[in-house]
Amino acid sequence: MLLNSQQCDALRELGNIGAAHAATTLSTMLMTNIEMDVPDIKVIDISQVHQYVSDELAALVLFEITGEVSGGGYVLLHIPKNSVIRLTNAMLGMTEQDRELTEMDESALLEIGNIMVSAFLDATAGLLNIIMLPSPPTLTIDMPHAAVQSILASEGFMDINEVVLFRTELRSDQHKIINNLFLLPNEPMLDEIVSMLENLLKITSGPPGTA
């Protein structure tokens, strides 16, 4: 196994803080409340990815994580197709639901992704006392499973059989918008983050005065 249950809990808490910051920025952009679930963390076999990530069309904004961590980890913002227009409408102040996606929508999606993922990584890295930055984003409107699979087959993942699937859902009930943030660290990055978290927990759970 890549992670034991204690490490999963620590990672979940870390992701929770990051996702809360991403939710705040989304809430500011849309001027509405954003509901957020506790992040879902699973260690799954690659053959089972299809049970958690579908082939239903969605907007996918992908970032590589850079900064003071080893490369090869990604953040993927997943917006189901029926949420995409509602999201960009809410952001651009438009109302027409039944329309094709334009370049304006694509710019808006990239911008939303940039702001949310920057906030997510910033808060996460801040807690670990390091710097993490998103690469420039790439947007594709495609099948989520195909995107995740392509990431898992990329060089940074080095022939894995298991993957840590980290997902958190952000919702606007008012606008009926759903977003999912996926964190896809490769093994070296995952090991680094987990050991930083363990050090952090050791320090904070030490006797009074030692922190």
Partner: peptide, 15 residues
């Protein structure tokens, strides 16, 4: 065998 994310360093035309 598609190439979904052109320009990302780790994707050396795996497809």
């Amino acid at each position: 065998g598609a190439s979904m994310f052109k320009g990302f360093s780790g994707n050396l035309n795996i497809g």
